[in-house]
Design a protein around this nucleic acid. Structure first.
Length: 431
RNA sequence: GGCCCUAUCGUCUAAUGGUUAGGACGCAAGGUUUUCAUCCUUGAAAUCGGAGUUCGAUUCUCCGUAGGGUCACCA
């Protein structure tokens, strides 16, 4: 499902809930050629995942008998007629198309987001409404179904604005009531073209597979082309129902900004309870991490919270793991002597006494949390200068120039391993 | 091209016929326990152009300009 479809669904959902209506989605599968059962299944699965499952659903293809009956009625009344003409794809062949007798008048409808919109329908001519009595086209089927299914409000994408007059014409021919139409602004790519699934990966599946949370996507999408009139940005679906108003819907198209989505995702990641969060990270972590020499469940358990504030999405977790950012937890590094050298040190060897003193302290320290490790080390760090101790210590434990702070690292790997790595670092420098 | 829609920081947007044009993301600088991240503070950054109405317009009107949608025997 296209991300734009999700937003359209969201606004329909919010509008319906806000007004005590029924949130209704119809699969418009008039074109048999272009429909596959698994696509329809995928659509419902996406709705489910987003938390936007409709109150009521239907499918155009199930109403064929009724469409035939309605079409016959129009032809009998002579508001539509069957016309024999050469087939478009093969001019040798003759086909019989059903065309609407267009009264050719000026027509105005009151758009829920844009106000009155006027068209001259003359230019539409006697447009085709069915390939045959048995084969209605989209415009006809939609109007017939809307009427039969009691649709009162239609919220759809802006690209349908110019379809609306022809649908109203069919409606009037059928004698069906006119629903209220509202056309939502388009979601745009950074170059301001229409956001496309193929070109821009704008499918919900794409974002799901990157590890975005449905709650974050919904929240972001709600604010794309709508605003509550306050500075609040974080909304649950229920809160959205509460504050939603169609007046806050923007008229112009909105550029989809992944960075802002990522920000929302991080916010929602931070809100997750630790069970949900752990489940996600475990799935995102590559299998290879379990093959690291010191891998064990307790260390993983201590590492997990550290990951959370450093990533926006689960894809980033996988990438960071791939880049070896979490390896320190399960494998002793081979620290580089140059890296171990604090910027004020003349040579790396200057750091050895400080590391040795740290080892002495840690030998006695309480390793029950990162905090207690810090409490043990802190007075000495203050005494000699923080960077002097903290930099070489961190490099000893992780071998990297970017990592969580040394107290956290020490806590994750435990006393024994911490002392072993400090010793190893001193050896490295000594050689 | 015809018809239709739209126009505030890079992006999403707020606001009023009179404001230092506000917020968020991103960006930059500084700070918070060294690095990364988090967090905090500060900063740079916008009313498409031209007429008109008005004491005054970013806001109202018109004309341009730009962008978008649509012109099917697709949906």
């Amino acid at each position: 499902m296209h991300i734009g479809t999700v937003r359209t669904a969201l606004f329909n959902y919010l509008f319906a809930k806000k007004h005590g209506g029924t949130y209704f989605v119809r699969i418009e599968d008039t074109d048999k050629e272009r429909n596959k059962e698994e696509w329809v299944d995928a659509i419902w699965r996406d709705f489910e995942w987003c938390g936007l499952m409709p109150d009521k659903r239907s499918r155009t293809s199930e109403h064929l008998d009724r469409h035939r009956e309605l079409l016959r009625g129009l032809v009998e009344k002579d508001t539509a007629y069957v016309s024999s003409e050469p087939a478009k794809d093969d001019p040798e062949r003759t086909v019989e198309l059903v065309r609407l007798r267009n009264p050719g008048k000026e027509l105005t409808f009151d758009d829920l987001v844009r106000g009155p919109i006027t068209f001259d329908t003359t230019e539409l001519g006697d447009f085709v409404i069915a390939r045959s009595i048995d084969d209605p086209l989209y415009h006809f089927a939609v109007v017939a179904d809307d009427g039969d299914e009691g649709v009162t409000h239609v919220l759809r994408a802006e690209e349908h604005i110019s379809n609306t007059p022809r649908q109203i014409l069919i409606q009037e021919a059928l004698g069906f009531p006119r629903p209220v139409y509202g056309h939502l602004p388009l979601i745009l790519a950074p170059d301001r073209s229409k956001l496309s699934k193929r070109k821009h990966g704008a499918s919900i599946e794409n974002y799901r597979s990157q590890g975005f949370l449905p709650t974050a996507i919904i929240n972001y999408l709600a604010l794309l082309g709508w605003n509550p009139g306050t500075d609040q940005e974080i909304f649950s679906l229920t809160e959205l129902i509460d504050v939603f108003s169609i007046d806050g819907v923007q008229k112009g198209g909105a550029v989809f900004d992944v960075q802002k989505l990522e920000w929302f995702n991080k916010e929602y990641l931070l809100k997750l309870d630790s069970h949900e969060y752990q489940h996600m990270v475990r799935n995102a972590l590559p299998m290879e991490i379990a093959e690291l020499p010191q891998f064990d469940e307790e260390r993983l358990q201590r590492l997990l919270p550290v990951i959370r504030e450093r990533v926006h999405t689960m894809k980033e977790v996988a990438e960071a793991a791939q880049a070896g950012e979490y390896d320190f937890a399960f494998a002793a590094p081979h620290p580089d002597a140059d890296l171990l050298k604090w910027k004020k040190d003349a040579t790396a060897a200057d750091a050895i006494p400080r590391l040795q003193r740290a080892a002495e302290i840690l030998h006695e320290a309480d390793f029950s949390s990162a905090e207690t490790v810090k409490d043990a080390l802190w007075p000495y760090a203050e005494e000699i200068g923080r960077g002097e101790l903290l930099w070489p210590l961190r490099v000893s434990l992780t071998g990297r120039k970017e990592s969580p702070d040394p107290f956290v690292c020490a806590f994750i790997i435990g006393r024994e391993e911490t002392l072993a790595r400090i010793e190893k670092a001193c050896d490295t420098i000594g050689r």
